[in-house]
Structures are given as C-alpha cells and as structure tokens.
C-alpha cells in the first residue's frame, strides 16, 4: 500500500498542480481554458471532464503501450481519446443538458486539447498504469483550478454572480455600481489569463 503513494508518485501528482502547471508553465490547452470561462459553472464542469478524460486515457494508453507500433501511435491515441470524449459528451447531455449546450463544441474539442496528447506522449507511453493515472489526475486538476479562477473572476465582475447566485448586493447597483460587460467578452479572458500568468511567475520562483 505504501508503494502506491511513494515519494515519486506524490511528486508525479503534485507537480502539475503548481510548479509544472499545464496552462501556466507548459502553455498547453489554452483554447478551451479561454472559451468556456465566461461563467463559473461551465468552467468547473469543463475542468472535471478534462480531469476524467486525461486520467483514463493515460491508464488505457499506459496499458497498451507495449503493443502500439511507433509509427501510428498518434492515430491510436486520438481514437482512444475520441472514444472517451464521446462518452463524456453523452453523459453531459444526459445529466447536465444546459451546461453541455453552453459548452457547445468545446466538449468535442477536448480531443484536440494539447494537455491530453502531451501527457500521453510524455508520460503514459513510458510509465506504469498507476503513476500514469496519478499524472493524469494531477494534470487535469492543474488545468481545472486555473479555469475556476478565471471563471470566478469573469462571472463575479461580469455579471455580479457566482454559480448564478447573486454576490454583489442590490444596494450597490442602486448606489451606481455597474457590471463590467467587457468581462464576459472573449478579449478579457486573454487579459485575465495574462495577469494570472504574471502573478504566478512573480510568486513562484523556479
């Protein structure tokens, strides 16, 4: 049991959360991070979906790694990921229809999310299933928390709510406070993410 959570495995899990964050340091998976974060709820759903898909695709590829011919590995990886994404998209349509409409094509675009291909190529192809699983969960959560931060800032200042619950009270509006409509526009997502990168680089010294 102790070997399951050895020092190495802990490192594999914790590194992508901060020091080697997929978005802030490796610059992977930016597209969806920007597009779905205009509200907090879709950001959380998207973060969780990506975590589930990275974890399980890592396990599957890690199990198959000795049988995959080198030349066609990209296509095999893509097919495994596409099958998992199809399942997740069906589950979302069945149990969270409103969010899946809001996410629209970006659920399908998880297939081409660079985090997945990056982890499959760099980790799952050369490691055992259990560390690969931890690596997948770690990378997915590292991606998810950035989405949650950006989504929370944009929803709070863009519409004055969090998870559709009003946070900024009515008397502020009566006193002349206004929502910043700019925050819900795509352009602000870039600028907020730029500031998150700035803060992260300033706080975390390599």
């Amino acid at each position: 049991m102790s070997s399951l959570f050895s020092k190495d495995n802990q490192k594999v899990f914790l590194e992508p959360l901060n020091l080697n964050n997929p978005i802030l340091v490796q610059v992977l998976g930016i597209c969806s991070a920007l597009a779905v974060t205009s509200k907090l709820e879709p950001s959380i759903v998207m973060g969780l979906s990506v975590t589930v898909i990275t974890a399980f695709s890592n396990v599957i590829i890690s199990l198959l790694r000795k049988t995959i011919p080198n030349r066609i590995r990209i296509i095999i990886q893509l097919v495994v990921v596409a099958a998992l994404v199809t399942i997740v998209s069906m589950v979302l349509k069945a149990f969270a229809y409103d969010v899946s409409v809001e996410l629209s094509v970006y659920v399908g675009l998880i297939i081409t999310n660079c985090i997945l291909m990056g982890r499959l190529e760099a980790f799952a192809m050369s490691n055992e299933p259990w560390p690969s699983f931890l690596d997948g969960v770690g990378s997915g959560l590292g991606y998810a928390w950035i989405l949650v931060v950006v989504g929370a800032v944009r929803e709070l200042f863009g519409s004055g709510t969090l998870l559709n619950i009003r946070i900024i009270p009515q008397f502020c509006y009566d006193a002349g406070y206004m929502d910043n409509g700019m925050m819900t526009m795509p352009a602000m997502a870039m600028i907020i993410l730029g500031c998150v990168v700035w803060a992260h680089r300033a706080l975390v010294k390599e």
């Binding site: 802030l24 610059v27 526009m185 795509p186 352009a187 602000m188 997502a189 870039m190 600028i191 993410l193 730029g194 500031c195 990168v197 700035w198 680089r201 300033a202």
Partner: peptide, 17 residues
C-alpha cells in the same frame, strides 16, 4: 515576470478587442 507568455496573452487580448 510578465515577459514571454504573460505579455503575449495581454497583446492577444488587445488585438481581440
């Protein structure tokens, strides 16, 4: 600490505007 990635994001944001 804004060099590289950070400033590029902000530039793209302004271009998007």
């Amino acid at each position: 600490s804004l060099q590289g990635l950070g400033i590029t994001f902000i530039t793209v944001g302004l271009m998007a505007m």
